[in-house]
Design a protein around this nucleic acid. Structure first.
Length: 593
RNA sequence: GGCCACGUAGCUCAGCUGAAUAGAGCACUGGAUUUCGGCUCCAGCGGUCGUAGGUUUGAAUCCUACCGUGGUCACCA
């Protein structure tokens, strides 16, 4: 049983015996550094049940605990705070239970409904950029955290593969492409298709300018530009199933998917299942028809279908256009239902989508509830803030978009520069070195993004993101590598288990053990709050405590053999915990760096 | 304008399901190595927790108003 749970029972018993009152709960907090003790009971909330002076009450409870609970070895009361000192044997026993658990902190799979986590969900007309990077890192990490908390998880995305955007790229490629392919140009497929999207925009603008010269006003010119009309015609042909257009669409989307896969692989994320808008919007239309019958939706005179959400404090929302074609909402309804059909064990879903779509998801979840799906109550919009650059917002038109592939490469390059200066890798092969630079560069990037609360905006300062000191990924990786170095040099018997009597704890060791004890709870909290930031910040605190110990005591040069054994084992366990924590953030740890 | 989110040290962020003197990192200043990896550690400097009210024994945390920033209010996605 956890320390806090044990103490809670005893505090309740104490209050029962001393004051003949029943407490519903007991409030604990870690004892602040400036006071003596390991864990603190806050007396104030008890005053509602037990009348009296908080200091006196604290003293009485403290005395009771000291007399009746063996692991309580002392106490003191400051104001309304009862600081309890815990016997070292508790921490040593705790350590012995976890020291060989390679999966420490992770809960075993609970017999519970699975969760589907959607992330990435790109359009197929341009490459991934920094904004997608945050999305992908968050979604992947939340998936891993949910798994670590004991849930079955499916990772997925919805690919926006149909619509005018891809037709624009297709048309431009037809006109200006001269049959170029990723193979013939050596370009990644998503980059190639993205280039033609830009080409389209250029041609479009030229045509608008020409029409304006010919006397049209700008608004009309934007609507009448021939190339735009042609793109719209192409979309109609696609919807009509024109064989040639569909073949081109399949070819160019295929290029994009290959490009995306390369980027996902470079980032180190994966998916269990892909959904395509082109395959789910029809199901959405079916359910709109059904909702119309059951009265969830209503039809306007022009034939468009709406959902009235005014009773819920929202507006009316369109779910089908007057011409009968699907809107965004239609296909999201279809996609959600399709997913539950495909995976009947799924009881809830997490949508990783930027906060500009907060309203959309509020409405989507409400509509699914109205349609009567019981899983609709377990839908969560993992809403995250924009990524800004020091120069302001990213704007594709102004060319300030940070490309995902470029970014990953730059991070690795920077890691290489810094590592070379410090040079500890002379005996590494070139391939191993490259792999390591990628690990460090990606570690820096991922940690920089994940340590911030998802809902907050991120200011992405390239200079700061590649910082290696302080609260950064490489700092934590460095500590891990340093621990591995100790383990390589130590030659202790791994299987020794020291009893509490054989170990006397250094203050820093006790701090570290308390910190280690928190890890499983951190994972659970991060899961329920969908926040990798909690894991990131925890890991940093753990690492700081380890470095402090490292600086204060000699591990391999400990005076006594038992001390050395204990410290090496402790170091190993800290290393394992760093590794586990980082694994749910999607960050690798190096043996050396 | 309506609705939503955010506002904590010069900068980047924790703390936000209420509790002790609001914590880290960067930057700046000063220290530590006959020692296991100095990408380290220790200390100092730095705060009207956006503003004003309210609830409470107790508010950065909860409530209200206002200010600032961003988002959103499409038969776009």
């Amino acid at each position: 049983m956890k320390l806090q749970d044990t103490l809670e029972l005893h505090v309740k018993a104490a209050v029962k015996e001393l004051f003949r009152s029943d407490l519903e709960s007991v409030e604990f907090q870690a004892t602040r550094k400036e006071f003596t003790g390991d864990i603190t009971v806050v007396v104030f909330p008890m005053l509602r049940v037990v009348k009296g002076n908080p200091v006196v009450i604290g003293e009485q409870i403290g005395q009771y605990l000291q007399d009746n609970v063996t692991l309580v070895k002392g106490f003191n009361v400051v104001k309304g705070f009862l600081n309890i000192e815990i016997d070292d044997s508790y921490y040593v026993d705790f350590f012995n239970t976890i020291k060989n658990q390679s999966n420490y902190g992770f809960a075993s799979l609970k017999d519970d409904k699975a969760v589907m986590v959607e992330y990435s969900s790109p359009n197929t007309n341009k490459p991934l950029h920094l904004g997608h990077v945050r999305n992908v890192l968050l979604g992947y990490s939340v998936s891993e955290i949910l798994k670590a908390s004991g849930k079955k998880v499916y990772k997925t995305q919805i690919i926006n593969d149909r619509g005018i955007h891809i037709c624009k790229s297709m048309l431009a490629w037809q006109r200006f492409g001269n049959g170029e392919t990723p193979e013939s140009t050596g370009l990644k497929g998503d980059k190639l298709v993205g280039n033609y999207y830009v080409e389209f925009d250029k041609a479009y603008k030229t045509e608008i300018a020409e029409l304006v010269v010919q006397g049209q006003n700008e608004e009309d010119a934007k609507k009448n530009a021939p190339i735009l009309l042609e793109a719209q015609e192409m979309l109609r042909q696609w919807e009509a199933g024109d064989a040639e257009v569909v073949a081109l669409w399949e070819k160019m989307n295929g290029w994009v998917y290959e490009g995306f896969e390369e980027t996902y692989k470079a980032i180190g994320v994966d998916f269990d299942k892909y959904y395509y808008e082109s395959q789910t919007y029809l199901l959405g239309k079916e359910f709109v028809a059904e909702g119309l019958k059951s009265g969830v939706f209503f039809k306007k005179e022009d034939g468009s279908v709406w959902c009235d959400l005014t009773e819920d404090g929202l507006d009316e929302k369109i779910v089908l256009r007057a011409d009968g074609t699907a809107v965004y909402m239609t296909q999201d309804i279809g996609t959600a239902i399709q997913r539950i059909k495909d995976y009947p064990d799924v009881g809830g879903m997490v949508y990783t989508v930027g906060n500009e779509q907060d309203y959309h998801f509020k409405v989507l979840f409400l509509i699914l509830k109205k349609l009567g799906f019981d899983w609709a109550k377990n839908l969560y919009h993992l809403s995250y803030g924009m990524v800004d650059l020091p120069s302001g917002k990213m704007k594709s038109r102004e060319g300030t978009v940070v490309d995902a592939d470029d970014l990953i490469q730059e991070m690795a390059d920077t890691a290489e520069e810094i590592s070379k200066e410090l040079g500890k890798l002379d005996d590494y092969s070139e391939a191993d070195k490259k792999e390591l630079y990628k690990t460090i560069g990606l570690g820096a990037l991922k940690y920089y993004i994940l340590k911030v609360d998802p809902k907050k905006r991120i200011l992405f300062d390239p200079k700061e993101s590649i910082d290696f000191q302080g609260n950064t990924g490489p700092f934590i990786q460095y500590t891990y590598a340093r621990i591995q170095s100790i383990l390589r040099k130590s030659n202790i018997d791994e299987n020794i288990t020291l009893s509490a009597a054989e170990v006397s704890l250094h203050d820093k060791e006790r701090e570290l053990l308390k910190q280690l004890e928190q890890f499983p709870e951190v994972i659970q909290n991060a899961a329920s709050q969908h926040s990798p930031a909690l894991v990131a910040n925890y890991t940093y605190d753990l690492v700081k405590d380890f470095n402090s110990l490292y600086q204060n005591v000699s591990i391999l040069g400990a005076d006594k053999e038992e001390e050395k054994v204990f410290r090496v084992q402790l170091s190993k366990t800290v290393g394992q915990t760093i590794k586990n924590a980082f694994s749910v953030l999607g960050i690798e740890v190096p043996e050396r760096m």
